[in-house]
Amino acid sequence: MLRRQFHHLLTASVAASSFLSPVLTHAQSRVLLRAGDQKGGLQALLDAAGELKNLPYDIKWSEFPAAAPLAEALNANAVDFGPIGDAPLLFTLAAGSRVKAFAVSRSDAYGTAVLVAPNSPLKTAADLKGKSIATNRGSIGHFVTLKALESAGLKAEDVQLRFIPPADAKLALTQGSVDAWATWEPYTALAETSGHARVLVNGRGLWTGLSYLAATDAALAEKATVLQDFKERVERAQVWSYKNAKPFGQSLARIIGIPADAAQLQFERRATRWQDIDAQVIADQQRTADFYLAAGLIKQRLDVRATFDTRFNTGKA
C-alpha cells in the first residue's frame, strides 16, 4: 500500500509540500543532493530566483566546463544528476552509463553554432570542406557540426575534427590554429560580444534544442522526492527569469563571471522553456540517436524510450 501511495504522489501534479513528505520534512535525516552543473547553468538561475533559500535538503555543487566531463561524473557516481544536452546524453548512454533523463527543456538552437574568426573568408557550411573544426567529442557542438556538414553535402571525413574543451578551442580559434569552433551558449555569446568570433552556421533547423536533467539510476531510486522538488524549483526559476529579464541578466553575469552583454544575449536568445517528456520529445531524441548511429558515433541502435523516467511529468504539457 505504501508503495502504491508513493507512486501516486510521484506522478501526480501536486504541490511540493504534499509531495515531499516525509523525506524532505524530517530534519534529522536531511538528504544530500550532489548536483552537477555547467557554466551558466542551474546554480546561477536558482540563486538569482531565490529558489536556493530554505531548502529542506542539502546541495553539493560540482561545476563542469562541458557535458562530457559531467557525463563522466554521472557514470562514476560522483554526482547524482546534472544538465546535459540531447546529443551528449545519447553518447554516454550508448557507452553504458546507468542514467536517465527525468526533466526536459527546449531552447532556441541558434547559439549552438559553428563559429569562425571575424575576418575568416568562410561564408557557408560548404566552405568548411578541408578545414579544421574544434569541438567536444559527442557534444551538441559536435552534433551541429555533423548536421551542418550534411546540409552542405559533406561528411565528417571532409573536415579535420579536433576534440578539445571549450577554453582550449576558443584559444585555438583566436590564435588561428583551427579554422572553426563548434560550441554552445554561453560560449557563443561570449565569443560574439567580445569580437573574437562570428557565427558561420547556427543551430536552427539542425538541432532540436533539447536539454535534460539526467540522474543516475541510484539517485532516481533513492532520492526521487528530492529530485522532484529540485525540478519544480528550476521550472519556477525559469519562469521568474523571463519575467525579470534585465535584473536576471545582470545577476547571471555576476554569478557566472561573464560580461553583462554576453549574459543577457545568451539568456534571452535561448528562450528556454521546461516541459513534460512527451511523444514529440521522445521522437526527436530517437532521430538524434539514429543520426549518431549513421554517423558511426554509436555502434548499436539505441531505443531511447528506456532512457527516460517520465514519473516526474506534471501532466500540464
Rank of each mutant, 00 (worst) to 15 (best):
P186G: 04
S251M: 11
E157P: 06
W184F: 01
T188R: 06
L190D: 15
T272L: 07
A172I: 09
L173F: 08
R273N: 13
L265R: 03
D217R: 06
F230S: 09
R162G: 09
D229W: 03
A167E: 06
P247H: 13
A253Q: 11
A262Y: 03
D284G: 12
A262Q: 04
S211L: 01
P166A: 12
A156M: 11
L210V: 11
F248V: 14
A263P: 02
D261L: 01
A219N: 07
L265A: 02
V239A: 15
A253Y: 10
A224D: 13
L265E: 00
V226L: 11
T188Q: 07
Q275Y: 00
A197G: 10
T208N: 10
F230R: 09
V281Q: 05
S211A: 03
Q280N: 11
A218M: 04
G249A: 11
F248K: 09
V234K: 02
L227D: 03
Q160N: 12
A214K: 06
V234T: 04
A260K: 08
S241W: 02
L213Y: 10
K231V: 00
K246V: 14
E150L: 04
A180H: 13
Q160A: 08
T216S: 04
K170P: 00
V159L: 04
G257K: 02
V281E: 05
G249D: 05
T188Y: 04
E185Y: 15
A224Y: 08
L154M: 10
E268G: 01
A271G: 05
V226S: 06
T272A: 10
A189C: 12
A189N: 08
A197P: 09
E235T: 14
L161F: 14
Y187W: 14
S151Q: 02
E192R: 10
Q175D: 08
V159W: 02
A218S: 12
A180Y: 12
S241P: 03
A262R: 05
A167G: 02
L171I: 15
W274N: 03
E192D: 08
V239I: 15
V159G: 04
G209Q: 01
D158S: 03
L154G: 07
T225C: 06
I282R: 12
Y242I: 03
A245G: 09
E150Q: 07
A218H: 13
L210Q: 11
L227Q: 02
E232F: 08
A214F: 05
A237W: 01
S194W: 03
L161M: 14
A219R: 05
R236D: 13
L210K: 09
R273G: 11
V239R: 15
H196W: 05
E192C: 06
E185K: 15
L227I: 07
Q280A: 10
L252R: 05
T208R: 08
L154A: 11
V281C: 04
Q266M: 03
G195E: 08
S177D: 09
L171K: 15
Q266F: 04
A180D: 13
L252T: 02
Q238L: 14
L161C: 12
Q264K: 07
G205H: 12
T193S: 13
F230V: 08
D179Y: 07
V234D: 01
